[in-house]
Simulated assay, not measured.
Amino acid sequence: MTTLGFLYPGHHVAEDDFPRMEILLDAVRLVVNHTEVDEDVYETDALAETGAPGRLATGVVGLQRAGVESVVWASSGGSFLRGWEGAHEQTAALARAVGVPASSTSFGFVHAVQELEVARVAVAATYPRPIAEAFSAFLRSAGIEVAATHAAGLTSAAQAAAWDLEQLKELVTAADRPEAEAMLVPDTALHTVSHVTELEELLGKPVLTGNQVTVREGLRLADRRSWSPRLGRIFAEREAPPAPVARWGEGRAYAHSGKKPWHGRQIRSGE
Score class of each variant (00 low, 15 high):
Gln266Met: 08
Gly210Arg: 06
Ala222Leu: 00
Trp227Cys: 07
Pro128Gly: 15
Val110Met: 10
Leu25Cys: 01
Leu202Phe: 05
Gly264Asp: 14
Ala158Cys: 08
Glu237Met: 12
Ala240Thr: 08
Val196Thr: 08
Val98Thr: 01
Asn33Phe: 13
Asp40Ile: 05
Gly249Tyr: 12
Gly83Gln: 10
Pro130Leu: 07
Glu179Leu: 06
Thr192Ser: 15
Glu133Val: 05
Leu203Trp: 02
Leu56Gly: 01
Lys169Met: 14
Trp248Val: 13
Met1Ser: 01
Gln212Thr: 03
Leu139Arg: 03
Ala97Ser: 14
Glu69Gln: 06
Ala48Pro: 05
Thr58Tyr: 07
Ser136Arg: 11
Ala240Met: 14
Gly83Thr: 10
Val32Asn: 01
Ala27Val: 03
Leu25Val: 00
Val193Glu: 15
Ala160Phe: 02
Gln114Leu: 15
Trp84Cys: 15
Ser104Cys: 13
Val71Gln: 00
Gly204Pro: 02
Ile23Tyr: 07
Trp73Phe: 12
Ala137Thr: 12
Val61Ser: 13
Lys205Gly: 07
Val37Phe: 04
Leu7Glu: 02
Leu24Trp: 06
Phe18Val: 03
Ser70Tyr: 02
Arg230Val: 01
Thr91Cys: 10
His195Leu: 05
Leu30Arg: 04
Ala161Lys: 01
Val28Asn: 01
Glu49Leu: 13
Leu47Gln: 09
Ala14Ser: 10
Ser136His: 13
Ser156Asp: 13
Gly153Tyr: 11
Gly232Asn: 00
Ala162His: 08
Arg82Thr: 14
Arg216Gly: 09
Ser103Asp: 10
Ala112Pro: 08
Glu36Arg: 15
Val172Trp: 02
Ala148Trp: 09
Arg120Gly: 10
Ala240Pro: 02
Val72Gln: 09
Asp38Tyr: 04
Gly218Cys: 01
Gly5Glu: 04
Ala174Gly: 11
Gly67Arg: 03
His263Phe: 15
Ala52Asp: 12
Glu43Leu: 11
Ala134Asn: 02
Val185Ser: 12
Ser79His: 02
Glu133Cys: 02
Asp223Trp: 09
Val60Leu: 08
Ala142Ile: 11
His150Glu: 13
Leu203Met: 05
